[in-house]
Design a protein around this nucleic acid. Structure first.
Lengths: 365, 365
DNA sequence: CTGAAAGCGCTAACAT
DNA sequence: ATGTTAGCGCTTTCAG
């Protein structure tokens, strides 16, 4: 059965397509009686206007694209939820573009970003939101950055928690440095002085910034920063385990008593590895994460962490994009402040015990 | 700057739009020299064909819609990843339609499902995938079911892990009953006889079926099923805690030694509650989950669970949908088999200890 | 191998 | 208040 069109409705109602269109869009007054008649037919035939045809002429589709690296990483669904919430209210629909960073080489991922950028433009989306991927790079290549800049000339693009060189973008970001400071000062406040930093990637700006916050807080407190206590190379649970093992691998009488992790996932890995080493968290070792994914509240022990306000990040981005669409807004930068969420994985330093006693336990047992 | 069209290219290349279209789609032989000339112009102007116009006439959009209840529940991103993987290879793009079950009343959720169903049709998607929501209902209302049936007449719909009365649908499901049996038999195999079942909703078919598997395995082993040891009412971590507290609330000398949970999240809640009660998992209490979300491998202790093969579920659904699009395939039913994943949260029954000793500890301390 | 022309389903002037 | 008509940007016969 072929779909019914405005023409079918018009014919049966003895009116012109224009009139049908008018009742459809409430774009001009229509006599009550004919309006009713048309409405009836619409009901009767379950008529649904073809959004493609409509968009073709109106030059707006009510669709926005979101490009992200890995939907499987719980951080992203959280900001997605925020996006959805806000965008739904404004009548937008979402293209989800997962570039699948998890199981591919990094080159393929960036390629897929480019690919999606093109597809989205062809599909005439009203705007694009990017999060993760190339925009997280501390030094993104000129070409990759330019590509996005070109897109940004044609339609609004907003970057979440990232940036690209060579052009101004609309962005909504969290103050990562402040987050790093917050986390580190929390630990310092608990009496810790031997504090390590693990997780993330040195090439990524978020890691660099979190690390910068860590460094800043340490220096401000007059504490020593040991290069071998800063280990990066991954955001996963697995990576967290590896880093922690590395930290605990050497002479155990000389290990940190507290750890700032670049994200929650690696913090969880760190906890698991610590436990395997016979250490108790937080009694023998304090661990703080970054992100505040839902999971953070559900592991045992519950994770103390820095909330990145994922939901708010998403909502704000959607809001800004909505403002931008249609209007030629100027470049926008919104900075959200992170928040310390104290739960169970951090505790005051237990003087005299932490390093020798607990450390030895782990090395002997 | 207004977008360039095939006409612009045609004019500059001194050919007709037909020829441009031909090189764009490789739909007829074009002289090499003119082809090159056109390709050059396309490059030069960064020309991108308008997918709306193209779809309008070709009657296919390369878009498919996925309607799900809550992207924030880690089960769904997992199947989404599977969908994406498969669909991307076939050139599809995704509409993500989150009906936001998490923070709204249930009525609103179903309403939003209807709404999205309509939007997706208007946008002319090539197919729709549904998971969760109304299709999980053990007894879905006639109207809600019919609505989907109507959609299914116009374009392919595939249901993941659910069903709707009154019509045949293409479905890909996991054998939930088998999963329930698997979980329960695992516990029985470890020597447990006092086994409870918690989590899920009695109104949802997945819960009913998992429970059916539990019952079946218990009866087959000649074990008694206590009505007060079957508690339903939620899938969240919070719900799991509540149920476990309820189980442990009464006389502690009379508590189960093992628990089948309706999903991983509630299992995690159960573990947390048990630990709060002074019980050790798995030493004093074995707990098994359902789903095998990534998180399951990352909690402490790592969760023994029933894998629902989320990724495969997603991939299969996308594959089937692809087959269906264009062709008038007959109704399809694919059943995947669940799998037991043994990790750390289950252990052999410790005779004589589990009930009295551990139970008393919890009641006294 | 290439061009002219007729739509796809809808909206928006411009008439009446 | 309603009808006529010209497109939106593309594909696709049908002719050459």
């Amino acid at each position: 059965m072929k779909p019914v069109t405005v023409y079918d409705i018009a014919r049966e109602a003895n009116v012109s397509v224009a009139t049908v269109s008018r009742v459809l869009n409430n774009t001009a007054p229509v006599k009550a009686s004919t309006r009713e008649r048309i409405m009836g037919l619409i009901q009767k035939h379950q008529f649904q206007p073809n959004a493609l045809a409509r968009s073709l002429i109106k030059k707006e589709t009510g669709m926005i694209g979101i490009i992200l690296p890995d939907i499987t990483n719980p951080f992203f669904p959280e900001v997605l939820a925020g996006l959805e919430q806000e965008a739904r209210n404004n009548g937008y629909t979402f293209f989800l573009c997962d570039t699948g960073s998890s199981n591919q080489d990094i080159k393929a991922q960036y390629q897929r970003e480019s690919q999606y950028l093109n597809i989205l433009m062809e599909k005439q989306v009203d705007g694009i939101i990017m999060i993760g991927g190339r925009i997280d790079l501390a030094r993104c290549s000129k070409e990759m950055a330019k590509e996005v800049a070109e897109v940004n000339k044609r339609l609004p693009v907003v970057l979440i928690n990232g940036n690209l060189p060579g052009a101004k973008f609309h962005r909504v970001i969290i103050d990562e440095v402040a987050g790093g400071v917050l986390a580190t000062e929390h630990l310092i406040g608990l009496g810790h002085t031997d504090i390590a930093f693990i997780g993330g990637y040195k090439q990524m700006s978020n890691t660099v910034q979190r690390l910068e916050g860590y460094t800043k807080a340490m220096q401000q407190a007059g504490l020593q920063i040991r290069e071998d206590w800063i280990i990066t190379g991954g955001f996963t649970v697995e990576a967290g385990k590896v880093f922690m093992n590395q930290l605990l691998g050497g002479e155990t009488e000389n290990r940190p008593t507290a750890i700032v992790c670049a994200n929650d996932l690696s913090a969880i890995g760190a906890i698991k590895a610590a436990v395997k080493h016979g250490l108790r968290v937080p009694e023998d070792m304090s661990i703080i994460g970054f992100d505040d994914i839902p999971l953070a509240a559900n592991v045992i022990p519950e994770l103390t962490t820095i909330s990145l306000k994922c939901l708010e990040l998403g909502r704000t981005a959607a809001h800004i994009l909505h403002q931008l669409i249609g209007k030629n807004g100027i470049d926008t930068l919104t900075v959200l402040q992170p928040e310390l969420v104290v739960r169970e994985s951090t505790a005051p330093l237990r003087v005299g015990i932490s390093i020798s006693a607990a450390g030895n336990v782990s090395s002997q047992g």
